[in-house]
Computed example of a mutant assay.
Amino acid sequence: MTLFPLPRRARSMALALLACLAAVSGAQARCLTDCRPRVGIVSAFGAEADILVSETRSRRTHVINGKRFTTGTLRGNPVVIVLSGVSIVNATMVTQQMLDHFRVERLVMSGIAGGVNPANHVGDVTVPDRWAMPMEVFWNADAKLPAPCGATGDLACLGLQLATGPDGKPLPPFTLSTPHGPVETGLFMRKNYVLNAANAPAGGFMFDYPVDAEMLAVARDLQPVLERCGPKAKRADGSTDASMCVKQQPRLLVGGRGVSAPVFLANAQYRAYLHEVLQAQTFEMETAALAHVAHANGVPYIAFRSLSDLAGGEGFDADVGALFASGLAEVNEAAVTLAFLDAWRLHKQRQPGAKR
Rank of each mutant, 00 (worst) to 15 (best):
L171Y: 03
L187T: 09
L83T: 10
W139D: 11
Q97C: 11
V116E: 03
P182H: 09
G76V: 01
G159P: 08
P172G: 12
V108H: 01
R190H: 07
T178F: 03
T175V: 15
N117V: 00
R103C: 13
Y209E: 06
G159I: 07
P134S: 04
T164Q: 09
L160V: 02
G203I: 08
R190C: 02
V94S: 09
G159M: 07
G115W: 00
V183C: 07
L83K: 13
V122E: 04
A200K: 09
M189Y: 03
V194P: 03
V89W: 06
F188S: 03
L158I: 04
V89F: 12
P78M: 06
D142L: 09
G186W: 04
S84E: 06
D129M: 06
L99G: 01
F207A: 04
P148F: 00
A132M: 09
T152S: 15
V80M: 04
R106W: 10
M93T: 14
N199D: 10
F174G: 03
F138Y: 15
G203Y: 11
V89S: 15
G114R: 02
L158V: 00
A198T: 14
I112P: 05
R103K: 13
T95A: 09
I88L: 15
A132D: 00
M109D: 09
G186K: 11
L155K: 02
D129T: 03
V104D: 03
G153V: 08
P146D: 04
H180C: 09
P179C: 08
A141N: 10
P166M: 07
A156E: 13
A151P: 05
Q97E: 12
D100P: 07
